Simulated scan of single mutants.
Amino acid sequence: MTTPTAPRRVAIVTGGSRGIGRQSAERLAADGLAVIIAYASNDREAQETVAALQAAGGTVTAVRAEVSDEGAAEALFTTAEQTYGGVDVVVHAAGIMRLKPLAEFQVDDFDRLHRVNVRGTFLVNRQAARRVRAGGAVINLSSSVVELALPTYAPYAASKGAVDALTRILSKELRGRDITVNAVAPGPVATDLFLDGKDEATVERLAKMNPLERLGTPGDIAEVVSFLAGPGRWINGQVIRVNGGAI
């Protein structure tokens, strides 16, 4: 007598075509999940990611979706359900960064930052709350800079502080659903988002903030995402700092 095969779990990874999002998508695909990669605009980059994951044996589809658009966020989840039958894991890694001293920060930049980082998290998490299946996990990407309080990061850190609050409260609102909600808060990680606009001396200084004296890698973060998406079922409503001990 054959044992029935468990249905494949399905993950949505926003910001999944680059950096931490891409590495998280690769890790979840390697863990056996079917993966929907959501990306904002770069079709070539998204298709390269899909091709790489498929070549490694993964089941993956890319969907162009602006996470701060209400209709696009809803359509993303609908596509996952229609393509793979449901949603079990949501990794919300889409985000942008703008760095300047507060006195010099432009209102348009502030509004754009919060539209993507806060409104986008709200819209994706709202869909997740409505549609993730029992046994699932929601994992938001926050930042250790909320606690590090580095100069020039105030508006960005404020947007990630909002992510932390949404995460903690949503975990309580999903009581009885067997769905965990956590945030992963990286320190400095060697991604294009982090390295853009920083000179070598600045990068070296930030790398040595932690006792391991190096930048994190997207793979370091993806390991924690994988754990929270799979065996880490007793961790819920937490903001987990993944920063080599910088705080």
Rank of each mutant, 00 (worst) to 15 (best):
S68Q: 14
V67W: 06
I96D: 04
R64C: 07
L76M: 01
K100Y: 02
A75P: 02
D108C: 03
V63P: 05
Y84R: 00
V63L: 06
E66S: 13
T78E: 05
Y84L: 01
M97Y: 14
E81F: 01
A94T: 14
A80F: 00
T59E: 15
T83Y: 00
G71C: 11
Q82G: 11
V107D: 07
T61C: 09
I96H: 05
A93E: 09
T79Y: 06
D108R: 08
T79H: 10
G95W: 04
A73F: 08
A62P: 01
A62D: 02
V107H: 07
E74Q: 15
E66I: 13
D88R: 06
F77Q: 09
Y84S: 00
A65F: 08
E104L: 15
A80Q: 02
P101C: 05
A62V: 04
M97N: 14
P101H: 05
S68A: 14
T59W: 07
V90R: 04
V87E: 03
M97F: 12
R98N: 09
E70G: 08
E70L: 15
T83H: 02
E81L: 02
M97H: 12
K100Q: 11
D108I: 06
G86R: 00
T59P: 05
A94D: 11
V89Q: 11
A103K: 10
V87H: 05
V87D: 03
G71T: 10
F105P: 07
V63H: 01
D108L: 06
T78P: 01
A75N: 08
A73Y: 09
P101L: 06
G85L: 05
F77D: 09
E104V: 07
D69T: 00
V63I: 13
E74L: 12
I96Q: 06
S68F: 14
V67M: 12
E66C: 13
V87L: 04
M97Q: 15
A93W: 08
E70N: 11
P101A: 05
Y84H: 02
V87I: 11
V63N: 04
S68I: 13
V60H: 08
D108P: 01
T78V: 05
L99P: 05
V63A: 04
F105K: 08
L102S: 12
G86V: 02
R64H: 06
V107N: 04
L102N: 06
V91A: 13
T79F: 09
M97C: 15
A94C: 11
V63G: 03
A80N: 00
T79L: 12
G95C: 04
A73T: 12
L102I: 11
T79S: 11
T61Y: 04
E81C: 02
T83K: 04
